[in-house]
Computed example of a mutant assay.
Amino acid sequence: MRGISFEIPNEYGKWLPNILKPIDCKEYNWIIGAGEEYKLQDNDLVSLFPDDVDILKGKELLQFIDTTEPQYIIFADLKAFPLESNLLEIDSYEDFLISDCELILLIVDSVYTSLYCKDVETLNELYANASSLNVDSLTYITDDNNFSKKLKVR
């Protein structure tokens, strides 16, 4: 098992904190890849993450994603590395396997969500959590059904 995939509704919500709920985000440094994540603030969409930020400590990540404002995610590319580990760009599943990265969250076209995780127990917790969110098309990503060559949203 490589990960899980599912579809979230194309609507405002709190998808990032809800999807990552089983993860102790504070235990990681997060690479924030090219994405389009917004929050609704004063009836206007504003960027969820500052433009000049590409790495966040877990506590900082939570400050951005665990807000009261509804969020709208078009693309998201979040990669979790244990504290004190080497942060490297991950382009493929093979890169992921040989890196210190433990978790990858990708959302494409506001709906299509993939989570790659090295730890099987954590992966099962993420699956159970996604199931509780009533997402569509929830399935495990395996060697047989993983057709994605890149682990990036763009």
Rank of each mutant, 00 (worst) to 15 (best):
E125I: 02
I19A: 02
L78C: 06
E36P: 00
K150N: 10
W15L: 08
I55S: 03
C25S: 15
G58L: 07
C117E: 11
F64K: 13
F75T: 15
G13P: 04
F147P: 00
K79Q: 14
D42G: 09
I98Y: 10
S137H: 12
E11R: 13
K59F: 01
C101S: 00
D24E: 14
P50C: 02
L62M: 13
K21S: 12
L78N: 05
K152I: 12
D144Y: 11
D143A: 13
S92G: 04
Y38D: 03
N145S: 05
E36C: 08
D44N: 13
T68A: 09
K57A: 13
F49W: 00
G3F: 01
S5Q: 14
I23Y: 03
I98F: 12
T68C: 07
L20F: 09
L45I: 03
F96P: 04
Y127Q: 04
R2S: 04
V108Q: 12
Y38N: 04
L138F: 06
C117V: 14
I8D: 01
L48C: 03
D136T: 12
S92D: 07
K39R: 15
Q41W: 09
R154S: 10
P70K: 10
K26V: 08
S148C: 07
P9T: 06
E89G: 04
D95T: 09
Y93K: 06
L83E: 05
P9G: 06
K149I: 11
A76M: 09
A128Q: 14
I73K: 04
D77K: 08
P82H: 04
W30K: 07
V111S: 11
Y127V: 03
D143Q: 12
Q63S: 13
D44P: 00
Q63V: 05
I19H: 00
S132T: 11
K152E: 11
N10K: 14
K39W: 04
Y38M: 05
I23Q: 09
E60W: 03
S132L: 11
L151G: 02
D95N: 15
A128H: 09
S99K: 03
K57I: 06
L40W: 08
E27V: 03
Y140C: 08
N29L: 07
L138W: 05
Y116T: 08
P82A: 06
S92H: 03
G35L: 05
T113I: 03
N146C: 13
Q63E: 15
D144K: 13
A130N: 08
P50L: 05
R154T: 06
P70V: 08
T68Y: 13
E11V: 11
P9E: 10
Y72Q: 08
E37T: 15
L115S: 05
L123A: 09
S137R: 11
F75K: 13
E125T: 07
L88R: 09
A76Y: 03
Y12D: 10
G13S: 07
L61S: 04
E94A: 10
D24Y: 09
G3N: 04
W30E: 05
L115I: 15
R2G: 00
E89W: 00
C117Y: 10
F49S: 02
N29A: 06
N43P: 02
C101T: 01
D52K: 11
I74L: 08
C101L: 02
N145T: 14
V53Q: 04
D144N: 14
Q41G: 01
Q41N: 09
L88K: 12
Q71F: 00
K118V: 10
M1H: 04
Q63C: 08
L133M: 12
